[in-house]
């Protein structure tokens, strides 16, 4: 898929700067700024109604910002000479005429973008839809619709991919396929920006995350860094019939001990070997000793707590 040309990397950098969108009663996006780098998969996360879709649509010139700019390789979307060769986007799963065949849907787009006619066949093959080429869109399953959307985005072999909730409605096999596909594109040096609220999937897929809530940026950075930055870091989870004995054995040190709803101890501030030694010293019997690292879901929920309300 790579065209072999070496272009400056910032050619594919997305820069969102001071972006705002005021709808009649709602400030959907509020002075939002972030950057998305080439060669990485960036997860764009936020609760429902956080303004993810509006932001992506402003980036693509479908929605006019009230203030601020969004550029791709330094240019606004309508300033790109051949937008589909530069940027591919997948916005809704259902964006094709129901009575049109998959291949004709792609041919219509190719024609409008001035792309060679065989690109439609190539893009369809790329997503594995060739057997359904001549079937009408209304007969497609949700997974097939998503694949057709990706094929449309890949028509111009773009440097930048923007996907809004691409995993919606995919079965586990489809999700795994999508993950491999997007990671592959990033490995080729392309920019991949994916919005989602499937956090466990994002943890497997994304290199970087941009987290927004209530239209504002909450956190941006590499996934590991964002997770590591949380105040509540690593915890040790212990199950023991002698919880009180272990708690007193750890008292006086840096350990902070809490009890969860199942009676297990959650110990922060010390690592698992320290807890194990303390238990051995006190003669406490252990049934479980696990190191718990915070995952993206926990970090996300803590970061966006209280901001996810209906606006």
């Amino acid at each position: 898929m790579s065209d072999g040309q070496s272009r400056p990397t910032n050619d594919a950098q997305i820069v969102v700067s001071g972006l705002s969108k005021q709808y009649r009663n709602v400030l959907a996006v509020n002075n939002l700024s972030f950057t998305v780098e080439p060669g990485r998969v960036t997860g764009f996360l936020g609760p429902n109604g956080a303004g993810k879709t509006t932001t992506l649509r402003m980036l693509l010139n479908l929605v006019t910002p009230t203030a601020g700019t969004a550029t791709i390789g330094g240019r606004r979307y309508p300033e790109l000479a051949e937008p589909l060769r530069h940027v591919g986007a997948v916005l809704e799963a259902s964006s094709a005429h129901k009575g049109r065949t998959g291949i004709n849907h792609l041919r219509v787009i190719s024609a409008a973008a001035g792309l060679p006619r065989q690109r439609a066949d190539e893009a369809l093959a790329l997503v594995g839809l060739t057997p359904a080429a001549k079937r009408k869109f209304k007969g497609y399953s949700l997974g097939m619709k998503q694949r057709l959307g990706i094929a449309a985005a890949m028509l111009g072999d773009p440097r930048v991919l923007i996907l809004d909730e691409p995993a919606n409605g995919l079965d586990p096999e489809g999700i795994r396929w999508m993950r491999g596909f997007l990671k592959g594109l990033a490995a080729e040096g392309r920019t991949v920006l994916v919005s989602s609220h499937l956090l466990s999937e994002m943890q497997l897929l994304a290199d970087d995350v941009v987290i927004i809530a209530a239209g504002q940026l909450v956190r941006q950075g590499p996934v590991d860094q964002v997770i590591g930055s949380m105040a509540q870091g690593v915890r040790v989870r212990v199950r023991t019939p002698q919880a009180e004995a272990l708690t007193s054995a750890l008292a006086g040190g840096p350990a902070r001990v809490q009890t969860d709803e199942h009676g297990a101890l959650l110990i922060a501030g010390v690592d698992a070997p320290t807890v194990g030694r303390a238990a051995l010293g006190a003669g406490v019997e252990l049934h479980e000793l696990t190191t718990e690292r915070p995952d993206l879901e926990r970090v996300f929920l803590e970061l966006t707590a209280g901001k996810a309300g209906i606006r």
Binding site: L80, V87, H97
Partner: peptide, 17 residues
Amino acid sequence: NEFFHQTATTTFLATPR
């Protein structure tokens, strides 16, 4: 049709003008 079938998005992505 472009609005009914939500193809306006694809159309204006291919041609922002």
